[in-house]
Nucleic acid binder design. Structure first.
Lengths: 347, 347
DNA sequence: CTGAAAGCGCTAACAG
DNA sequence: CTGTTAGCGCTTTCAG
């Protein structure tokens, strides 16, 4: 900028304004400045600009696992939206670990991100991170996982609905001994478990305690959990899995045990990750509109950032949608028509 | 920082040094400063620090698709390594589009990243982006895709080896009419095609022109391409696919056509993405050590950044590894032992 | 319409 | 060991 100013015999200020298309600069000088800038291949320095304006146009996205297609899709949705709105996104991976997440958030704050989208790995009841965010006045939108008793912005499904929808579907398919491979002690894990229990109760079904197993949300532990379930007597005839990777692992275990999916045991997951249609047995699942979660959260966050005053907490609950594929369809589908319990919005 | 200095009656400089654990500060003052900093919940401002030091400790990673497991895994490897080395990674998605990639790189440069890792979407022969990078003296490491005639750092496989390894494996399995669903006109696409042709020639096999189809590297177009192949007369009995998503799509098409995989048609992909073991038919593939590519590239980039003088171009070629699963195994595996053509390093 | 002055929060270099 | 001076590259504010 200094060079341009010197070359053109104008002040630094004039250059600065011209470059930013400020109104009170004559057409002519602006063009001279722009021309010279191009010749010199001038590149604005965002660091300096940020320091002066106190704006970074950077936002953070914290997810538990980059490699989980569900969150990758969320990230893609958010990235596209932010890009369109002139913000840069920085993605951080918390590795499904509360401390790592706190560290990542601290790093992002130190970089002066203007806002944060978080699919939090904080266990139920641990709210310090959110208190910090609030006290530092950093706009943030929670996604996918909604901690209880917190007045924050949120975009995602209601997890008990997911659990009830999936479990209800298994009941509809004729399953009577329905097990659950649960997730960790985070809102999605406990919420889906709650929904599962509610649906069982609603249908007057009872199952042994041992029918709820699992902890870690990946296909390896889905496999292990399923093996445990299959060793029980009586063996479950339907399994609702915390998410699609877990379900994929469960299918592998079932097939390995020589069972037929869905006839010996029906399986359903959640998340509708991109490859679930390509699995050994195409996987029934609950679609949570991952891409849309990313987009919607991004829009909301920008609103928060650009609002003068903090907005009051806004929650967008996305309707979970049953996607029934082969892994759970035990009978030819009942005739379409109004009144089917769990078919609304099904593919 | 000013507040701390005022409260303690010392200079700003003293505070600055104490905070950074500079040596020439007395134990005692340091502790006083640190204590007060904690009390005031002082958070260093990276923007200001960056402006003063001309260091950002930020690096960029540009990949063609966040949602492709292969690149997600690369990203994970790089992220972990950078994190350990005290750098922050910013991931950008080029959407497999050359212009978007150039825009993303420009954005990252404007943010003063200190270096870049790029899995480039530039088509063969288009080298302007790399010239820019070079002229701007921005350290960069190319991964996965190595443009011809460019003296740059690189980490990845040799694509003709991938093509030859995969195709040779199909020959070993008894396939004689081997088709190829190819990728785009980028180094990986043309390199694998070249390897495929070389292997066919080496085995004295000839195939009709129509046996090479495809363009887009996703499962949808893999499906379409496979349908085209299956309509040919004679029908191929083996297909080498550009990557695993394409192969997954191809398997779907084959099964839908009522064919048996691998007996009617054997299929192999490349990339060894995490879920390939869980597909309808567990997918044979070429492992490219995606995670290690990320790690290695990160290490190399940091070396470049921290070196006084530009390093001379360093290339790390990773040995592709055959992973033979069900989608290509037409006969019981031959007895293990030395001398098997393509078994080195196989799982 | 143009420009001078002051400062964003921090640090390198050097002087005491 | 501590402090002073002079910026980093850009912008806001306000006076011409």
């Amino acid at each position: 900028m200094r060079d341009i100013a010197r070359d053109l015999g104008v002040s630094l200020m004039t250059v600065s304004k011209a470059l930013r298309h400020h109104t009170d600069i004559s057409e002519q000088t602006r063009n001279r400045v722009l021309k010279r800038a191009r010749e010199l291949n001038y590149q604005p320095n965002w660091i300096a600009r940020s320091l002066a304006t106190r704006r970074t146009y950077m936002v953070g996205l914290v997810i538990p696992d980059l490699m989980h297609s569900f969150f990758a899709e969320v990230a893609k949705g958010a990235a596209r939206k932010f890009d369109a709105l002139g913000y840069q996104i920085v993605i951080a991976d918390s590795e499904e670990n509360a401390e790592t997440e706190e560290r990542q958030v601290a790093l992002l704050l130190a970089r002066n991100v203007e806002g944060l989208i978080i699919a939090s790995a904080q266990p139920n009841g641990r709210a310090e991170l959110f208190r910090t965010l609030r006290s530092r006045r950093c706009p943030h939108v929670l996604i996918d996982r909604l901690p209880g008793g917190l007045a924050t912005h949120y975009v995602g499904c209601k997890d008990d609905e997911i659990g009830a929808l999936a479990t209800g579907h298994l009941v509809d398919q004729g399953c009577r001994r329905i097990a659950h491979i649960r997730g960790p002690a985070i809102p999605t894990g406990t919420g889906r478990l709650r929904g599962y229990r509610r649906a069982l109760a609603a249908h007057g079904l009872e199952v042994p305690r041992e029918y709820v197993v699992g902890r870690h949300p990946d296909d390896e532990s889905g496999y292990e959990a399923m093996r445990r379930l299959l060793s029980l007597e009586p063996r479950p005839d339907g399994v609702f899995c915390y998410n699609d990777p877990v379900a994929a692992g469960a299918i592998r275990a079932a097939l390995e045990a020589g069972l037929n999916v869905p006839n010996d045991v029906a399986i359903i997951g959640s998340g509708n990750v991109h490859y679930s249609d390509l699995l050994r047995v195409p996987l029934s699942t609950i679609d949570q509109s991952s891409y849309m979660i990313g987009e919607t959260a991004a829009e909301l966050l920008i609103q928060c950032i650009e609002a003068k005053r903090p907005l009051r907490p806004q929650r967008t609950f996305i309707q979970p949608r049953l996607v029934a594929r082969e892994s759970s369809r035990r009978r030819p589908p009942p005739p379409a028509g109004p009144g089917r319990a769990y078919s609304a919005g099904c593919c």
